[in-house]
Write a protein that binds this DNA or RNA. Sequence first.
DNA 1: GGGATGCCTGGATG
DNA 2: ACATCCAGGCATC
Length: 301
Amino acid sequence: MKTLHFSVQDYDLKKTLESGQTFHWEQVSGHSWEGMISGQWVRLSQAQHDRITARGVNGMGQVKGDIIRYLQLDVDIQSVIKCFPDDALMNAAVRARKGLRLLRQDPWICLASFLLSSNKRIPQIMEIVRHMSIRLGEQLIHPETGRQLHAFPGPESIAKSHESVLRECKAGYRAKYLYKCASLVASGEYCLDAIHVLELDEARSKLMELPGVGAKIADCVLLFAYGFSRAFPIDVWVQKVLGDYYFKGATNTPRELGALVQDYFGDHAGFAQQYLFDYIRHLKPAEWAGWVAEGHTGRSS
DNA sequence: GGGATGCCTGGATG
DNA sequence: ACATCCAGGCATC
């Protein structure tokens, strides 16, 4: 057993793990979560605001770098936030969701998770991921607790399975997409690694070639797995932010809207999106109505 | 090419 | 109770 300590600033592990960018972390106490990073079992904890602890099972040498990368511990979030537009809603979101970060996830796990996300709430997505991990994921036995652990299933494992198995895991109509994507990736016909070297627009188009992957899912994977910090997923929540607040009244095509977003939110638009999304998701309807009534007035005072 | 419609499923709403 | 609606979308027509 080895424990690693990381000193952090403006990093809220709870907000980050519960912000809907990942669906496989299991909360085991008020400030601890268990999951896997690079195939290794890890328990992450944050009892104090300035320290995150990672506990692993053995030889954590290699894993340290993986954890830093996964949690994006070397990102200077203040310099990112400085790039955000200076308006009232954006500032409120940054203040309210202080410590929210973006993770750098494994592309396959991220892609598969978001394929499962359409028309589902977060707890239901987590439920499907649990079922799939138990049914198809690699099984590990924790050397000390003896607990069984199940990794998120790789594309090969799913491809060797069957669409009906995914349906038994409650994936519903998404099963077909996930099965097809797994088959394409497992066979080598589609290479997830090739995305890394592409420009944002090319990478996006490439991901959208996959069955079941549209603009929203592509942008989630680009932002949460490939680290394109300009990728800006527009889901129903963010749609509200854009349509009811920032660009009210303008009937834009998705393409025009994308251009407006890139122009307004800048080089770290994806981070801004995550703060806005997480902020309004926690607002009461009346509070959101207040923002809409006030409207976007450009720069805050 | 923008705009409806169906899709699995479970929880919320009436 | 029981029907209906709708979720962090996408493909299809």
